[in-house]
Simulated assay, not measured.
Amino acid sequence: MWQDTAVSRKLGLRYPIVQGPFGGGLSSVDLLAAVSEAGGLGSFGVHHLEPAQIRDLDATIRARTNKPYALNLWVSNHDQGGLSLTPEVFAAGIERFRPYYEELGVEPPPMPARYGQSFDEQVEAVLEARPPAFSFVFGIPSPRILEECRRRGIVTIGAITTVDEAVAMEAAGVDLIVATGFEAGGHRVSFLAPAEDSLTGSFALIPTVADRVKTPVIAAGGIADGRGIAAALTLGAQGVQIGTAFLACRQSSASTPHRRMLFDERNRYTALTRVFSGRLARGIRNRFLEEMSASGVPPFPYPIQNWFTGSFRKAAGAQDRPDLMSLWAGQAAPLMRHHDATALFAELVRDASARLGPRAG
């Protein structure tokens, strides 16, 4: 059967379908549990959480499901110059975004002690929690961390955007590789070359990577229905990762305006941009994206840009202002039909089964 693949066997899944991990508070235990209980791999992006929060989250997940799941971290969690600002540059940043603070009625935030979390601290919390799977983006963890995962029985899943990255991932001994085409929503997770130089589409990336490495490949980017699953497996993948379609479901922690926009006809107008976080990411075009792009002012490095925009994006969501939010979405958003994760998963299985039949994995 099509669902019996190296990916499903390695992870102990009924179906080789992975829910994409969403960072920045978009993941939810409800969504993870719905996917895992349905026979796939639910995921939770924890790169924005402190170590204690990661440990508490893992306990909450285990109380909801005894099925396999993954916690996800960003290996590289800051770019050059992204750890600190002088008071003068910080003040200039506040002025840059002041029109949005004023429009939303938000008080500009004070200068923080730090702009993001420490991967080294976070990964120790993940190792301590010992989830069934640990997935990661923006790089490869150290040999010590990967060895600790093997010792503790944690399956490792690394994301790549190029063949070179896939080769490096395999050489490091990672268990499964997520090949992410440029159609995918959210951040481009490149780590060996600039993201702008790593924009291979799924139809070219999946078979090229599958031919080059022996590590089982999970296809991601542009997959939202059974046709995408069938195509990915035919191209040599052993599983699929689906993000935007699950993000649009009521169980995710995406805000109401974000989920509404994912079903709006404007969902077909996406762009790759650095204006929201400082790293290249795909989202629906909106006013903030257009204004910041037209300004010609380069964004701050990650995570500083993300901190500044995050200080008013949440207020924009609460005020139903999608024009000032980061509306992450992949190019397959127009294909989405389901608002419920359980119904979506069931339809994915039905559609894929109808197209693939008793195909061997």
Rank of each mutant, 00 (worst) to 15 (best):
V155A: 08
T309W: 00
E347L: 11
P299G: 10
G23L: 04
F191P: 01
G239S: 08
T162F: 04
L192F: 13
R212E: 09
R9T: 15
V155T: 08
R282W: 06
G181Y: 01
D164M: 13
A315D: 05
D197P: 11
H258S: 01
G139L: 06
T5N: 08
A346N: 15
T86Y: 15
G283Q: 05
R274T: 15
D175M: 11
Q238K: 12
G181P: 09
G357I: 08
V46L: 07
H258C: 07
A220P: 01
L233W: 02
G222C: 04
P301F: 10
S198Q: 07
G357P: 07
A70N: 11
R282Y: 11
A113W: 12
W2P: 03
G23D: 02
P334T: 04
T200M: 09
A360M: 10
L327N: 00
V29I: 10
R64A: 14
G310N: 07
D120I: 07
V297Q: 13
Q80F: 12
E124N: 14
A70E: 02
A232Q: 00
I61C: 03
Q3N: 11
P143T: 12
E196F: 14
I154L: 13
A224H: 01
E37N: 13
F288K: 03
P194V: 05
G185N: 05
T162Q: 06
A333H: 02
T200K: 07
R150H: 12
A248P: 00
L49H: 02
A281R: 01
L327Q: 00
S293A: 12
V137C: 13
A360D: 11
S84R: 11
A237L: 03
L262S: 02
G153S: 14
L85P: 02
L324P: 00
P87Q: 12
A248G: 03
S135H: 08
G221V: 04
A248L: 04
G116E: 04
R9A: 13
A224V: 06
F182N: 05
R266V: 14
R287Q: 12
D120L: 15
H47P: 07
V174H: 02
A195R: 05
G158S: 12
M111I: 05
D58E: 15
R62F: 11
V46D: 01
E37P: 07
V189H: 05
R212F: 08
F308R: 01
A38P: 02
I17L: 12
S295E: 08
T60E: 13
W307I: 04
H47T: 15
G236H: 03
V275H: 07
S36I: 02
D340W: 00
S353F: 09
A237H: 05
E124A: 15
L247T: 02
D323I: 04
S252Q: 08
G243Y: 01
A34M: 10
P257A: 06
R98P: 11
F182A: 09
E103R: 14
G153A: 09
R55P: 11
V209C: 04
A92E: 13
V349H: 03
F312K: 00
I17Y: 01
G20D: 10
F97D: 07
P141G: 06
F203L: 12
Y100K: 03
A341E: 03
Q53G: 06
L176I: 09
R55Y: 12
L11F: 10
E103G: 10
P21K: 05
A232Y: 03
R266S: 08
C149H: 04
S353T: 15
A91Y: 14
A204K: 14
A316F: 09
T180S: 11
S36L: 03
S255K: 00
G186S: 08
R130G: 15
R268P: 15
